[in-house]
Structure formats: C-alpha cells, structure tokens
Design a protein around this nucleic acid. Structure first.
Length: 545
RNA sequence: GGCCUGUUGGUCAAGUGGUUAAGAUGCCACCCUCUCAAGGUGGAGUCACGAGUUCAAUUCUCGUACAGGCUACCA
C-alpha cells in the first residue's frame, strides 16, 4: 500500500491538490518591496490596547510599502469565540482609521478570511503531507496521552509525542483502515524529522538571530474535529494569502523551529517573521502583560469615554513602536505618522510598558494643534455620546463655542489645557449663561477676603473704566489706571519692591474681576473672556455678588 | 524542571570596546507673565549584581539575581 492510498483513505473527498491552490492564490502583483502583512486575532471579545497595537504595526508596515493589510480571523478554537466578535474587531479597527484591504466582511481574492471557512484548504495540504509521508493519523486517546505525559514526567524526560512515544507513527495501512472503519476518532500528526539536539537558526526582524532546538515532536496538524490548531493553519494561510512578513506575539517565538519544519515539509517558502513584544503594565512592583480584565486603561472603550482622540493613541503607538519616531515628530509636528519610515529593527527588544501618562501628554499636544473648528466638531461627536446636555448646549451656541475654544489657540504656542474631550467642559462651563446660573458656584477669592473691597473694585471698574470696544492694550491700560486709583501697584515689580506702599497689585485687581466673572482664579486670557461674555452678561455677573 | 528572551535616570527610552551616556515625560528652581496654560533657562537622577577577556567593559564572554515567554487536539 502506498502513501497515496493512505491519503485517499483519510481524505476521500479531497480532490484538489496543492497545485490547484497555487493557481487559485497566485503570487501578488505588487511593487518592489511591498509588504503583505496581516492582523490575525481570535474573536474572543472586544479589542484592547494590546490588540490595537498589535494591529497598528502590520498596518503601518503594509501601508508604508504600498503593500496589503489583511484581517484574518483565527477562530479555530471555537470554544472561546464570542458572538459578533468579528464585527466588533472590524468596528474598532475602522474607528482607528486603519486601512484594511482584505477582511472577512468585504472579502478579497485570497479568502476566505475566517479560518473555520478554510477547512478545505487545510485538508488539501494535509492530504499532500500524508501522500509524501510527512503526516500520519494518530488514534491515541486523551487518556493515552495523559499516561504518556505522566511517564515522561516520572522519568524526567521532555514531554511530548516524539520518538518511541509516537506510537501511531508506524501504524500499517490495514491498522489505520480498521480504526477508520470503526469510526475511531483521530488527529493528523506531523512526522517530524527534527533532532532536538541540533539547533535551528533563524532571523527574527525584531530580535535578530535566534538559535533554538529543532522540533522533534509529532505535533497535531488537524484536530479530531477536522480543524487545524494554530501552527498548521498559520502556515497554510500565510502561504496562500501570500503574506510576506508575519507579525505576531512574541510568545510564538519558541515554536518557530516547528513552524519552519512545517513550511519546509509543505514545500513553501517561509515568510519573514517579526515577533512583537506585548504591551506590559506596571502593577505595584511587578510587570505583567496588559490585561483586559484587570486594567481599565486596557479597554479601547476607556479612551472613547475619556474622549482621547484616536490620532493621539496612534501617535503613542508610533512612539513605542520606533523610539526615534518621537524625535522626528517633534521636528515635523505637521506631518502624519505615515510619513515616518518605520522599521522592525528599531523596535524595542524588551516589552514596552504601557504608559497612560505619556498618552495624555501626546494627546494634550495633539489637541493643542487642532483648529478651534476641529476641536468643536470632535467635541460635539464626543458629547453626543457621553454628555447629551452639553452637546445640545454647544450646538445652540456653535459659533460662540468655537470662539471660546479659539482663545489662545491657532498660534505658535497654543494653550494646552486639556488632554481629552471630556475635560473641556470643566474648563469652559462658566462661559455659558445656563451653566453659570445652575452650577454651584464656589468663588475662588484666594486671599482677597474683604467683600467691600471686592465690590469697590468691581463698581469702579464697571462704572469708570469698562468699555466693550476697547482693544487689548487699552483694556490693560485701564486696568492699570484702576489699580492706581484704588491704591494698588500698576505693575507687579513695583509692588514686590515696595509692598508697604500698596494695598496690592494689578494681580489682585484682575483677580477680583476674573473670579467675579468666572468664579475661578485660573482661567485663560481675561480680556478674551470678557469680550466673549459681552457687556450684559458681565454686568449681570457683577450684580450677582 | 527543561528551553528561550530581556534588564540603561521615577517613567518611556537612544546608543557605544575609549561618549560630558541622547531625547521625551515627570519632579525642582529661576525667568517671562494680570491668574492659569504655555514658552525659555538651569538642576537633581541611570548602564541589575559578580567574575573573566582587554591598555580600556554600560558595550564582548561566563555565572548569579530578577522579570517575561514557551513546554496543549489554546491562540
């Protein structure tokens, strides 16, 4: 009996061959140097920052080489899949404006893009491996394997299905046939030719040259449910999707020798590998992988709710991906991260620690460079979801709100008050009549405690000096005049040099007006605020006291 | 247990057989200033430990410690 007979016995319904697949999924016609990369998540739940970063890297690399970015769903472990998982992943990726060329929903020429729908492809390759005697069926039960493991542990041997432990390796055709006719459950195993005492050397784009023992374990290629585990699926998929660079979690690195044996056995040319370090987080004194459950800041929704712009998150990803990005971006603040030349070998070899503080800083800088109109539009989108009352307020006062947001913005050194959209309201609420009248007001008078003096300053100002049409210089001159009239120093230095001669300084004068109008001791430019508030509102607020 | 990988200021991190060991962020001080936010200037603070090779080691080698990963019909 030949291997071909065994192949036909195991896969009687598979008629296509590897050659057919090669024709169905031809080499891609792409420019020189174009990378085909993919993000291959399991649909086990919502994306978190770790996933988002893991997809950022291949997307960027594909795009900057005019290549292709593929989304492939690895759902071979259907125990863990959740309903709707695929759509949730696509939603998050699109929310982050990743450009996906091929995915399960919109398709592509190299699909299907869901592993459980690629069963036939796996079986074609599996049948081929049987036919060249590189794979064989194994009928060992879970108990058999547990016994084997126990024995190996007792003898302090390596655990696994290898060497003389690979009992089913030498089953005859007739024995196999009998099992099959009995309807016995079976898995397909690789017939490994590796030698554990020899080293397999390979190059990882991130980590450099790595040396690991060859694989000698007859790993499972096809599970008893007919679906392959990760490794075999990866080889078939990445080959026939014509992926040029495989990016994946660093934890796969120790199984690369096995994967390479598979690539070789199938007769496929292995792609380049880039093993990415996972995002870590500092938890007390220990460092661990970012966890969806333990870390609220790991959830993508955390950033939606806070209103941290997705662009800022991507800038953060760019900085941790290639640390020289940060310096480049400082020099080129107007450019897109797309213009930066990323490379795998600039990636850190130790896992980056997820740093919320850094994200906030990046976000702050990013927001400060937006135009008032852009901030307004984004703020409205955020508020529509998370603060409906505020949304309708800024819709009602659209131009007014844009003007508020434009205070000390759209200039060389703009203000950097807020790091996310959810913080904006707390900075500008007092500009709205509605909010000013309804919020609990806590006037921050600081060290100015004398009510009569406060009234005196305000009345003098509003009656003798205030004029809505003054420009900023005139406005400030008048503040100085007011100060002098009331016995305050017109400039701070005079006061500092001679504190006894004055009741205070212009600082106190402007502070009284500032607090009276806004309740806050710290605000942006007072002149701008007063201009926007307008005479009526100013007078109303002064009268309130 | 076995096999990999990593460890540079508080944090994120460049980098090298001879460097004043970048930069960012955070902190402190000062300047500017009507408050704030910025901006400017300055400051404190680092090559995990122990051997070895070398004229010279943060860099190369070995060991130790610590951390992470793999060791499934999970991915």
């Amino acid at each position: 009996m030949t291997n071909k007979d065994l192949a036909d016995l195991l896969y009687p319904n598979i008629t296509k061959t590897i050659d057919d697949l090669e024709k169905m999924y031809p080499q891609r016609d792409l420019p020189n140097g174009a990378e085909v990369c993919r993000f291959a998540p399991s649909p086990t739940g919502r994306m978190h920052m770790g996933n988002l970063y893991a997809s950022f890297v291949p997307e960027v690399m594909a795009k900057q080489t005019d290549g292709v970015f593929i989304l492939r769903i690895e759902d071979t472990d259907n125990k863990r899949a959740i309903e709707n998982g695929i759509q949730l992943i696509i939603d998050d990726l699109e929310n982050y404006n990743y450009i996906i060329n091929e995915d399960p929903i919109d398709g592509g020429n190299y699909g299907p893009y869901i592993q459980t729908e690629r069963k036939e492809i796996y079986h074609i390759v599996a049948k081929y491996l049987v036919s060249i005697s590189r794979a064989y069926p194994c009928f060992c039960s879970e108990d058999d394997l547990a016994d084997m493991r126990e024995q190996q542990e007792k003898r302090k041997e390596r655990i696994g299905y290898y060497g003389h432990y690979a009992k089913c390796r030498n089953l005859s055709y007739d024995e196999v046939k009998k099992h099959i006719e009995n309807g016995d459950k079976w898995v397909l195993r690789l017939k490994s030719m590796g030698d554990f005492n020899k080293k397999r050397v390979f190059k990882d784009l991130v980590k450099g040259t790595i040396e690991l023992p060859e694989n000698d374990i007859d790993q499972v290629l096809i599970k008893s449910d007919g679906i392959p585990p990760y490794a075999f699926a990866h080889v078939c998929d990445d080959h026939f999707m014509r992926v040029t660079t495989v990016t994946r979690d660093d934890s796969y690195i120790s199984s690369v020798p096995y994967h390479l044996e598979l690539w070789d056995a199938c007769g496929f040319k292995a792609p380049k590998f880039a093993h990415l370090l996972p995002l870590n987080i500092k938890d007390g004194n220990t460092i661990r992988k970012l966890s969806k459950r333990k870390d609220p800041e790991a959830a993508v929704s955390f950033y939606h709710e806070k209103g941290i712009p997705v662009e800022a998150i991507k800038l953060y990803f760019a900085t941790i991906m290639n640390s020289n990005f940060e310096g480049w971006y400082l020099q080129n603040p107007d450019k897109s991260y797309r213009d930066f030349k990323f490379s795998f070998n600039k990636m850190s070899k130790s896992g980056p620690i997820f740093d919320l503080e850094k994200i906030i800083n990046i976000s702050k800088n990013y927001l400060s460079r937006l135009s008032a109109k852009e901030v307004y539009d984004n703020l409205l989108v955020w508020a529509d979801k998370f603060d409906k009352d505020f949304a309708s307020l800024i819709k009602k006062y659209k131009d007014y709100t844009i003007n508020i947001l434009n205070i000390e913005r759209e200039q060389k050194k703009p203000r950097k008050d807020f790091s996310c959209y959810s913080e904006i309201k707390s900075h500008i609420w007092y500009m709205y009549e509605e909010l000013f009248n309804t919020e609990n007001k806590n006037y921050e008078w600081q060290n100015i405690t004398n009510k009569d003096e406060i009234k005196n300053i305000l009345e003098s100002y509003i009656n003798k000096y205030y004029n809505a049409s003054d420009d900023k210089d005139v406005w400030f001159e008048k503040m100085k005049l007011l100060a002098e009239e009331l016995g305050y120093a017109a400039n701070v230095k005079d006061y500092k040099n001679n504190q006894e001669a004055y009741k205070g300084s212009i600082v106190d004068i402007s502070m009284v007006i500032r607090v009276a109008l806004t309740t806050k001791s710290m605000t942006p430019d007072l002149y701008e605020i007063m201009k926007l508030l307008g005479t009526d509102e100013i007078k109303k607020r002064i009268r309130l006291l």
